[in-house]
Design a protein around this nucleic acid. Structure first.
Length: 908
RNA sequence: GCGGGGUUAGCUCAGCUGGUCAGAGCGCCACCCUUACAAGGUGGAAGCCGCAGGUUCGAGUCCUGCACCCCGCACCA
């Protein structure tokens, strides 16, 4: 076994082996309890970023955990067709050939996108395999595959017939670059520096003028009114009058509307119903005409008169100039505002009036709200519930039509003969009303999220009643980031209830986003993204996974730091080397004996030489038991970050730093005679080491699958794959007495090491230690004498009962730890002054400790009201501190006598 | 404006149902290539747990107020 873990070759090998052996395949016909989960489908054009890596790692931990618990585990992978992103990608490719999609025509273009998808799409899933994701790759799905497409049509037609999908002329967000509509949540607002101009609109008749403020002067060309608040005294007289719109020479009315904020700007607002959502609504209320002055290409239309053809930006300048020239521009000031931008490309969206398809949300939202209120769907951490409910209670209708070619085409046909509009699951060739074959299908496609909303059941075969669907729906857990709670989670809940009669999952585990080391969001424009594949190449997939999980607090964002990955890599190497040590020392172990110990719930209980286990063995088994139950408990609470921390600390501190060192003397001792005491002790050590290592690898496997599988396969006894080995359950190994005693022994060892370090004793120099303690403790020290000598690097260890002789004060350095008085006779190294200083410092600490416990115990009401075990605990703490204080005082007194009688340091 | 989150060691963050909880990683100091591991070992320094009150026998841990930071939603003429 090499002395360093090499992730690369292990990862390649096991990725292949797991897949070839269908280790992650979920059988629909097994009678085991099931666990099912669907992947949040990544964008088919996408490449893995570190945010996916976190999301996938969390899911994989739960999938592997349940699989090891014997559940028939389905984790279903796939991608979504990402309408805008994919179409844009292929259009860019075409552009290099000097072509546009219109040159190809719709059919050929869509064909071309499919080709692209087959070639490049889904690379992200290959990357997921490299991360160790234990998906059932045989069940990979795509939102545009045949089954999902059928589901989409079925859903559309159902909602259409139910009156929950309607078509209407509304103002919607239009992205001039992507050339499509966007839903409300696809528009992002971020504050930036803008300007607020004040314009002067003169009265059409009579005297006066009204001043309006605007951030978009170019839209004034399409103004069809000025609005003021009905209660606003300043403008009361203006209501009903008309003003003359500059540049356009058009008379427009002044109307009163509640939507106007009298405190903002001048208190009067220009109304452009065709280019502003609020103005659109004002226009509806007052029957105002809509004049579209900006087109879908973000250039001025013919309605803009002499400004026709200019871009929005050019028009703004030109309009301002013209206004200024005409004396209509009366003010300009800076203003922070947040214009809407396309979440895909960042272009400022243009609100435009057009005919679009909408989903009526209220009827769908109500049961989805109830499901969460009644706890049938639960968010973890819980506070995301409020976010969900708040949004759902105020939800607005969802614009689902997109002016793209790549996507599910809206299954609605309009008869050119009789004008009937029909929705149909099958392609319509004949008008159901008049029988005409002159039918035209709606040109738009559906929002990608419309199909994603069906993901948990469409991927299991719905609308057919399939065995998969019956077996694996509803799923058991959804893991995703908070940024898509509205986009995806809420819509899945609505659709799941509407079409399956129950929510698609009982639990939604929400995590934060991964930021860069400075806490900034990762973005292409900043160039601060981290490529997980590069991280994997350098540190290994397990290290990346572990560093992400370790850094994750419930629902919180986390910063990606290379030093954490490095630390996780070091941990992997630590596990590797500890295992290497164990495996080397298990070479001659009795396989049959180990067999009984491997992963068996009562292996150690039933082990035939159980009585040979030492205090140290019982200690590590107890610690292991604690770690195992903690990890299990924390995973049940959906807190893998804390679980990872428990494992890290148990393996590194207890197993590696303490137990392996403690066990070395026994393992290194020879013994040709298998009946000898030495041989028995050695077998006990091997058994314990094996049982704990085997169990630890199982516990660690969901977090670091490759490393653990690679090691596990090298154990003298192992199964076909750790991925399906049994998850450790309680085995009754708790041993409080052993924990306490070994805890004290370790304290003593640390104190001796401390004394050596402070006195500058070379590590290679063997010294003698004299320990004085109560009989009960003495027994433990006696039992572990060899281990103490090894770890504290002692030549000799003398154990002395209370009152027994200890070295002369001037000839030894001393300490008190774990209830034991420690004397190190260090000829020539004793400095009485330093000794005094150190002992006094310790004494102060002990006194402080005692004082704290005493204060608590003496506090009025404490003994009466605090639970008994807490009182006992504090009493024990006080007794311990007082005992230590007494011992230190003894040592100090001895020091005084020595100091008075001698001249400090001299040989013993 | 409504809602949520955060403020704990130099840095990044854990601390669940209030009672050894003052922790980890990285960094820092000293010593050590001790036969699993220098991607390591041993020892060490370092924090009045944002501020002010309150509840309680007892509060980083619960409540109230305040300050600063972050994020949703709405508004953004």
């Amino acid at each position: 076994m090499p002395h360093r873990y090499d992730p690369r070759q292990a990862e390649e090998r096991w990725t292949r082996w797991w897949e070839e052996n269908r280790v992650f395949h979920a059988r629909v016909d097994s009678d085991k309890p099931r666990f099912s989960m669907v992947i949040p489908p990544p964008n088919v054009t996408g490449v893995l970023h570190v945010g996916h890596a976190l999301d996938q790692t969390l899911q994989d931990i739960f999938a592997r955990w349940h699989r090891m618990q014997g559940k028939e585990t389905l984790w279903l992978p796939g991608t979504d067709h990402a309408g805008i992103a994919t179409q844009v990608r292929v259009e860019e490719e075409l552009a290099k050939e000097g072509l546009s999609r219109h040159d190809l025509g719709r059919e050929a273009f869509v064909e071309r996108v499919w080709q692209w998808k087959h070639h490049y799409g889904g690379r992200i899933l290959e990357q997921l395999k490299g991360l160790g994701a234990s998906c059932d790759w045989e069940r990979e799905r795509f939102t545009m595959d045949e089954g999902c497409s059928r589901a989409v049509r079925h859903v559309f037609v159902h909602l259409y017939r139910k009156g929950l999908i309607y078509q209407g002329d509304y103002i919607v967000h239009w992205c001039p670059r992507c050339q499509t509509t966007l839903s409300d949540i696809e528009v992002e607002h971020e504050e930036e520096e803008g300007r607020l101009w004040t314009l002067r609109y003169p009265a059409a008749e009579g005297e006066g003028e009204i001043r309006v403020a605007t951030t978009r002067p170019e839209t004034m060309l399409g103004d069809t009114a000025v609005a003021v608040h009905p209660e606003d005294e300043r403008y009361r007289a203006w209501i009903g009058r008309r003003v003359r719109l500059p540049l356009m020479d058009r008379e427009i009315p002044v109307v009163a509307d509640e939507a106007v904020d009298p405190a903002f700007g001048t208190g009067a607002v220009k109304v452009t119903p065709a280019h502003d959502p609020t103005d659109f609504e004002i226009g509806q209320r007052h029957n105002l005409p809509q004049i579209q002055v900006i087109g879908q290409d973000a250039r001025m239309t013919a309605e803009a008169g002499r400004f026709q053809g200019l871009t929005r930006e050019e028009a703004r300048q030109a309009v301002l100039e013209a206004l200024r020239a005409g004396g209509f521009l009366v003010g300009e000031e800076p203003l922070r505002h947040a214009p809407g931008r396309c979440y895909r490309c960042g272009t400022v969206v243009e609100p435009l009036v057009s005919r679009q398809w909408f989903v009526r949300m209220k009827p769908l939202a109500e049961p989805a709200i109830r499901a969460v209120e009644e706890g049938r769907v639960r968010f973890v951490p819980e506070h995301f519930t409020r976010m969900y409910l708040h949004w759902m209670r105020n939800v607005r209708d969802w614009c689902i039509s997109r002016q793209l070619w790549w996507g599910h085409r809206i299954p609605v046909w309009t008869c050119q003969a009789c004008g009937t509009q029909s929705a149909s699951e099958e392609d319509l060739v004949r008008c159901p009303e008049c029988g005409s074959e002159r039918l035209e299908q709606d040109p738009d496609v559906l929002d990608t999220w419309f199909s994603s909303a069906l993901w948990p059941f469409a991927t299991l075969g719905w609308p057919d009643d399939t065995p998969d669907l019956r077996r694996f729906y509803p799923t058991d857990l959804l893991v995703t980031g908070y940024e898509i709670i509205f986009f995806w989670v809420a819509r899945m809940i609505m659709m799941g209830i509407e079409f399956m009669g129950e929510p698609p999952f009982p639990t939604v585990l929400i995590h934060g986003i991964v930021r860069d080391s400075l806490g900034r969001k990762m973005s292409k424009s900043l160039g601060n993204g981290v490529d997980p594949m590069e991280v994997i190449a350098e540190y290994g997939a397990d290290a990346l996974r572990f560093s992400l999980v370790q850094g994750v607090g419930p629902g919180n964002d986390l910063r990606f730091r290379t030093d954490r990955v490095e630390s996780a890599r070091n941990f992997a190497n630590k596990v590797w080397n500890a295992s290497r040590f164990a495996i080397l020392n298990l070479a001659d172990a009795d396989r049959a004996a180990l067999e009984a110990l491997a992963g068996s719930p009562d292996g150690l209980q039933a082990w035939k030489e159980r009585e040979a286990l030492t205090l140290a063995d019982r200690w590590i088994l107890s610690r292991y038991q604690w770690a195992a139950s903690e990890v299990h408990r924390l995973l049940e609470r959906f807190d893998p970050g804390e679980a990872a921390q428990v494992l890290y600390e148990f393996i590194w501190s207890d197993l590696c730093d303490a137990y392996i060192e403690l066990v070395k003397p026994r393992l290194y001792q020879g013994g040709d005679d298998p009946e000898s005491e030495a041989a028995r002790q050695r077998r006990a050590a091997q058994a314990t080491l094996f049982a704990v290592l085997d169990g630890s690898l199982r516990l660690l496997h969901p977090f670091m699958p490759y490393l653990t599988e690679e090691i596990w396969q090298r154990l003298p006894v192992h199964g076909p794959t750790l991925a399906r080995a049994a998850w450790p359950r309680p085995q009754g190994l708790e041993d409080p007495e052993a924990e306490k005693q070994v805890g004290r022994v370790l304290e003593v060892i640390r104190a001796i090491r401390n004394l050596r370090a402070e006195r500058g004793v070379e590590p290679s120099r063997r010294v003698t230690a004299v320990l004085r303690a109560e009989p009960a403790l003495l027994e433990a020290l006696q039992a572990m004498e060899r281990e103490i000598r090894a770890l504290a690097r002692l030549e000799r260890l003398e154990l002395v009962a209370p009152g027994g002789a200890v070295p002369e004060r001037e000839a030894a350095v001393t300490a008190v730890a774990g209830g034991v008085e420690i004397y190190l006779p260090l000829a020539g190294l004793v400095d009485l002054e330093k000794e005094r200083a150190r002992l006094e410092k310790e004494l102060a600490a002990a006194r402080e400790e005692a004082a704290r416990a005493r204060a608590l115990l003496e506090r009025p009401g404490f003994k009466e009201k605090a639970p008994a075990h807490v009182v006992q605990q504090q009493e024990a703490r006080l007794a311990e501190a007082e005992a230590k204080e007494a011992k230190l005082l003894d040592q100090l007194a001895a020091l005084e006598r020595a100091g008075a009688g001698g001249n400090g340091a001299h040989g013993a």
